[in-house]
Design a protein around this nucleic acid. Structure first.
Lengths: 159, 159
DNA sequence: TTAATATATGTAGTCTACTACATATATTTG
DNA sequence: CAAATATATGTAGTAGACTACATATATTAA
């Protein structure tokens, strides 16, 4: 075991990221193996527009939990791929409304079985004593109650 | 609840990264609140050199689980900050040996209480039904046995 | 009804990791 | 021992997120 893994908790951010990268890379390969040209980073937008067919930029950003600039750059790529298209909102001229193109809808259809495979593979992978998905949800809940910074500040006073 | 959180497992990579970012940002603020000029990304290198005082570039990379180019760019920053220094290995001329400077050692001394605070705050944060740290370790173990791609491939055959 | 404020979108540049490629030295093999 | 291979380090460019700032339209308040 290396020093970092031993440091445990202190390098938790690093280890979360490492795990994320690993899963994402393999995810890309899974799509590829199914002959589908799709990048995992596109998933949140596509999945969201599949379930809520017409949304503005900021609405999508909120749904996927990204900032709006990050969202915009994803939208640009997806428009370039012709998987989504946009139109001005006639009521509110500031808004740009996004939706899947027909090509996008067909792709979603092709991806559904892949999503099932990914779901099952992930479920199997994280089905250990401490379930990773539930742990994430629980910690997200904890952070909502009290930020990590506030927790550290509270500990500080105790010392 | 938004669509992505509902999609659960499928967006697990995204959520791991989001959580990592959140923790890292607050971590930076905690150092700052203690009057310490230290970036969380430096932690793995500094912590490693603190426990293993003289290491080459690749040895550090392996310890912290990064690629060597990533490691080199961290080392560059830390040398600029005069927290570490390097010298050629006299036996193997290819190698560059790194170690903490006196400034680096003093900083580690100052950071120890902060590390304690961070440890306690993290422990408290992840002490839920499913412990995040243990979940990470368990999933890392699972991936060692069988990659995520291989798991998906196996599921594929079943369908 | 104008002025102030809020919201929606967009651009530029940054951050922290990566991959791909290049070079220098060491080690192994024919 | 020379050639092939392996290892150590380094550089350049990429990826996927971010923050900070800018602009246009809508809403609220004086």
């Amino acid at each position: 075991m290396n020093v970092i893994d031993e440091s445990g908790i202190l390098a938790i951010a690093t280890r979360l990221q490492r795990l994320s990268d690993q899963i994402r890379k393999d995810g890309f390969q899974v799509y590829k193996a199914h002959g589908i040209d799709f990048e995992p980073k596109w998933f949140p937008v596509i999945y969201t527009l599949f379930h809520k067919p017409v949304l503005s930029v900021v609405e999508i950003a909120n749904e996927i939990g990204y900032t709006h600039p990050s969202t915009i750059s994803l939208l640009k790529e997806l428009e370039k791929e012709k998987l989504i298209r946009s139109k001005k909102d006639k009521i509110d001229e500031r808004k740009r409304l996004l939706q899947l193109t027909e090509k996008g809808q067909i792709l979603v259809g092709q991806m559904q079985p892949v999503w099932d495979v990914l779901k099952m593979a992930t479920a199997e992978m994280i089905d250990t004593e401490n379930n990773l998905m539930r742990a994430i949800e629980e910690v997200e809940g904890q952070l909502k109650e009290k930020s990590f910074f506030d927790r550290a500040a509270a500990q500080m006073k105790r010392v």
